[in-house]
Amino acid sequence: MSFTTADVVKLRKVSGAGMMDCKNALAEAEGNFERALEIIREKGKLIANKRADRDAAEGVALSKVTEDGKFGALVVLNCETDFVAKNESFVAFAERILNAALENKVESLEALKAIELEGTAIEALVTEQTGVTGEKLELSYYKCLSDAAVVGYIHPGNKLATMVSFNKEVEAQVGKDVAMQVAAMSPLAVDESSIPQAEIDKELAFAKEKYRNEGKPEEMIEKIAMGSLNKWYKDVTLLNQIYVKDGKISIKDFLKQNDAELTVTAFDRYSLNA
């Protein structure tokens, strides 16, 4: 055969495929490195086509921010099994995608898929890695935030990731605590003003119907329902939620303890288990 062990190692490093797959590809290509790489990519496309209807419900959710702390990104790379999701190579591949998003400050999922890593578009690399893992892979979700400060959090296990943006620079632990609050309590919005009116109307109608069914006087229902709505705001809006590490004060008050003008401007949360 017109190739060496060093060629196999090089092909493995470039493609991420297993040693035997690389050896077989080089053998089929009669030692031609570029052709061997193409063979591995073609294998990935073939496997991807065969597994297109499979459910890729496992994977990793990762978030990270730029060195200046002003731009953050969250990506989700899916696979079929938890076995692959926990594989170091799979996680490293997802991290490469995330780093590319940060380096290019990508604004959308489609833009991220089009970015090239070592001359190949990320979307094509995902297909290529399908051949390496033998499972359907899918880059399914991407979100970015930018502001005076952005903080990311990845829950142990890589199944849940969050990002939070702030209007001012924030002390590292404070930012992390708020990002962990988002992970733990899954808020619907930053505050009541950022909840879609349709959601508010739906919740209010639900409360009124509930109290009517309980036999409350009609003239009291509006007032009681509004009280229920205010309680709902405290449950589903980040700034009004009780800070879980304290149990007494709201997130809004927690932030004010650190800086009177500090507040959250946006957040994102993704859980593979939800």
Rank of each mutant, 00 (worst) to 15 (best):
M1P: 08
T4H: 05
T4E: 11
K10F: 00
M20E: 11
C22Q: 02
A25W: 03
A25E: 04
N32C: 02
N32W: 05
E34Q: 10
E38V: 04
I40A: 01
K43A: 07
A48N: 10
A52M: 01
D53A: 11
D55N: 10
A56H: 03
A56N: 03
L62T: 02
S63N: 04
T66R: 04
A73C: 03
L77N: 05
N78F: 08
D82S: 02
F83L: 03
V84H: 02
F90R: 01
A92D: 09
F93N: 00
L102A: 11
K105P: 06
E107A: 15
L109A: 04
L112C: 08
K113P: 03
E116W: 07
L117A: 09
L117E: 07
T120I: 15
I122Y: 00
E123W: 04
E123N: 09
A124Y: 14
A124R: 15
A124N: 15
L125V: 09
T133D: 12
T133P: 11
K136Q: 14
L139H: 07
Y142C: 02
K143R: 14
D147F: 00
A149Q: 09
P156N: 12
G157M: 10
N158Q: 14
L160M: 13
M163K: 09
V164E: 02
N167D: 01
K168S: 09
G175T: 03
K176N: 11
K176P: 08
K176S: 12
M180E: 02
A184K: 04
S186F: 13
P187Y: 12
A189R: 09
E192W: 04
Q197I: 12
Q197M: 12
E199C: 01
K202R: 14
E203R: 10
K208N: 06
I224N: 11
K231M: 13
K231G: 13
K231Q: 14
W232A: 06
Y233R: 03
L239D: 14
I242C: 06
D246Q: 12
G247W: 02
K248H: 08
I249A: 03
S250C: 10
D253S: 04
F254L: 11
L255D: 05
Q257G: 15
V264C: 08
A266M: 00
A266N: 14
R269N: 02
A274K: 14
